[in-house]
Each structure stands twice: as C-alpha cells, then as structure tokens.
Amino acid sequence: MSRELAHVRQELDCQVCLSLLFDPVTLPCGHSFCRVCVLRASDHVHGCPLCRAPFYYDALGCASSTVLRSTIVSLFPAEYAARRQELEEEGAILPLDEVDRPGDGPIVFSLPLFPLNCVVFPGEKFQLFIFEPRYVLMLKHVMRSSRCLGLVNSTCVRDTNAVGVLLRIENVAPVGPHRFLVNTVGALRFRVRSFHECESYLVGMLETLRDTPEQCETEPTLSQGRGNPGAEATAREESERLHLGEQHESGTATVSCPVQTPEQASPCAELSSAAVARQLLDYLRTNQRNSYVTAAERAVDSQAYDEASFLMSHLLVRDVPSRQLLLEMTSTRSRLQALAQMVWGKPQRASGTASMQGRSSSMRGRLHQMRSTCTTQ
C-alpha cells in the first residue's frame, strides 16, 4: 500500500468503533460514522458522537453517503467485505446476500415481525406509518442492523406456519415526535417457524419460501428455437388459446372470456407459465400503464415468471384474503392460472356490492382449491 493510500485509509476509520466505515452516514457537522454506530450512539448522545454538535432530525432519517461508500468499496474491497462479515457474525446486520441467493433448501434467519391487516408481494413498494412506542423501538433496532423487517398478516401473526414477506427499508422520514413514515419494498417470502417476544414486539425464526421448480415453464431460448419461425409460431398459437370464447366488456377494455366457466377446469390448465404471463401482460397494458407494468414486462422478458406473477397479483387483486392465498402458493403456474381465471372468468350477472362480494368469494374458493391441488402434488 502506497503512503498516499495509507493516509487515505486512516481517514476512513469510524471514530466510534475505530474500524473501517461501513454503510457510512455524514452528519450536518461534516463527521462521518458507520450507520450502526450513529444509531447506537443516538440512544445516549443527542448529537454528533465526536463534536456533540446537535442535528435537528432523528438518527433514523440519516441517509447513507453513497459516494463515500462507493469510494471505500472500490479502494478497500477485501477489508470492506471482512467488515461486513464481522457485523453479520455480531448479528448487527442480516446476511442478505446469503438470504437472496437461491440454494438447495430454505435459509433460516431471525427478524422482527410487524403485524398488519394487509398483504404485500415481493417487488411491491409499501409505506408504513409507525408511531407505537414498541414499534418505534423495533424500528431503531432494525435500522441499526439489517434495515429489514418481516410483515405478517395480523390475522395469522401467531401461527407457526404463517407466510409473510421481508420488507427492505429504503428510507425513513420523521413526521413528528416519535412518528415515522417508512418507505419499504417487498423482497422475498418467508414462513414463520417459531417466534418469541423481545422488548414488547415479536421476533420470528423464519425460513425462506420459494416457488417449486416446474418443468416446461420457459419460452424457447436461442438454443431451443428462439428466432426459429416455427417455434415462435407454436408459442404464439399456445398463447392465443386464451382468446377462444365469447367477448365481453370489462372496465374500459375488451377482454376475452374462456369457454369454460370458473366451476369447470381451469381454462389455462394446459398452458405454460410463459403463455399465461404474456396474456396477462397484454391485458395489463390495455387497462393501465405504470412502473409495476413496466417491471412485469422486464420480468417476463427475462423469464422470471415468479417475479412477474407477484407484480401482476399486486395489480389485479385487492382483497386481503385472496392476496394472502396467492402469497402462500408455491407454484408460479398455479398463481398465474388463478389470476387468469379472475380476469377471463365468466362475468357475474348480478350487480352492486353483492356481485363484488360473490366474485371475491368465488375467487378465494378457486384459490383454495388450486393451492390444495398444488400441495398434494
């Protein structure tokens, strides 16, 4: 290491832990510290840990210094990786790289649980308003460590097999004394194995939940015939099978209704995930255009049909019980088929609230049946 680089390295030490800065934040006084160190110090010192200069916002709202962090990573990658491993072993941060990495089996980890009467899908942005003292304390704990929390439907929060979603915290905005708006995004699903209370809030022992691999779920690749007119024509013919049947009006767009009714076998039962996903994507393009539709397009183009199915579920399903059933499904194909049945199912003749309730109840019944079939298989 050159003399100049050694001098730079000395300036990149956190003055609280005396180690290399990790996820650095810069306070208004100009001093930089590890995020974990600032949050730990904020429990005892209401200001800069070094010069005691006050700053007039909560430490939870400190934004990461992205330029400083990228500089540290580029100059000292090995030491930064060792620092990450050290904090993971201490339990100060969650090993998200390991959690996100697909493996042979589920990965078990511990995380605070936030019960709420709603369901969030992976890839969906969600805003929390936290004001209860116990959850403010929980927020401080997760912000000084993993910056993640587990969202579980409040109706099943104490079930040992409850399925929820891990929320990554993007930023925290104080809106008053001990009141915070927390912007998050759904990252991955988990199943609760056990839980216990820690300082008045729940902490769960969780395991990752992924869709089971299925055969014949991808479109032809370059090596399998993509670019081959015959193969592409076959895929188009398979996709167009969804459009067989009578036409009816749904909202502002005309969609196709399959020949079979919801009480009969699924009209998409013989179609691949690729075909159903593209038909649902065409329907969404016709009815709305937003960032979720764009993200679903990218997921379908990259053949990430599980990711696309969750984005489409967010756009198409609103009632909480149906969303919970879709979240619990472990088959991408079944999830896409359930969405297709909802979109192209036989239209209800009744009108008003009773019609909507009947359609929602019918949807939940079909989801229960499809989930049971998927489980037995």
Rank of each mutant, 00 (worst) to 15 (best):
R335T: 07
S223I: 10
V165T: 15
H7N: 00
L336S: 09
I169D: 04
Q15C: 05
E232T: 07
P115T: 15
I72Y: 00
L315I: 09
E240K: 02
E4S: 15
A275P: 07
R84D: 08
C268I: 05
E88C: 00
C156T: 15
G176H: 09
R318A: 13
R134W: 13
Q247V: 12
P102V: 14
F190D: 05
S223Y: 13
A277P: 11
L151V: 09
E88I: 03
L209G: 08
A299L: 05
Q357V: 04
R318D: 09
A231F: 06
F55R: 10
T26R: 11
A41E: 03
A299K: 02
S74V: 09
H178E: 15
V185Q: 11
A41H: 00
L188K: 06
S250Y: 15
P77K: 03
D211H: 14
L209A: 12
F121T: 05
A187Q: 11
A274I: 01
T375C: 02
S355L: 01
Q260G: 05
A304C: 14
S372P: 01
V163H: 08
H31F: 08
H178Q: 15
E199V: 03
T332G: 04
P115W: 14
R83I: 07
E90F: 06
R278F: 13
C257P: 02
Q337I: 13
S309I: 00
L128H: 12
A340Q: 11
E197K: 03
V152D: 06
C156K: 14
E249R: 00
G225T: 08
K125Y: 02
P112W: 10
V185L: 03
F126I: 13
R366K: 15
L21G: 07
D13E: 12
H243R: 11
F55N: 11
F195Y: 15
D97M: 07
S309R: 03
T286A: 14
D306G: 09
G365Q: 15
V203M: 13
R193P: 01
V300K: 04
E217I: 05
C34R: 02
E246L: 08
L39Y: 08
T261E: 09
V99T: 04
V45M: 08
E238V: 02
E124R: 00
S74N: 13
L325E: 10
G204V: 03
V67W: 10
C118V: 11
L222G: 01
Q279N: 07
R359D: 06
Q348I: 06
C51K: 01
A308E: 07
V293F: 01
L181K: 03
A162M: 01
Q288M: 10
F180T: 01
Q324R: 01
C198S: 09
L139M: 11
S110R: 13
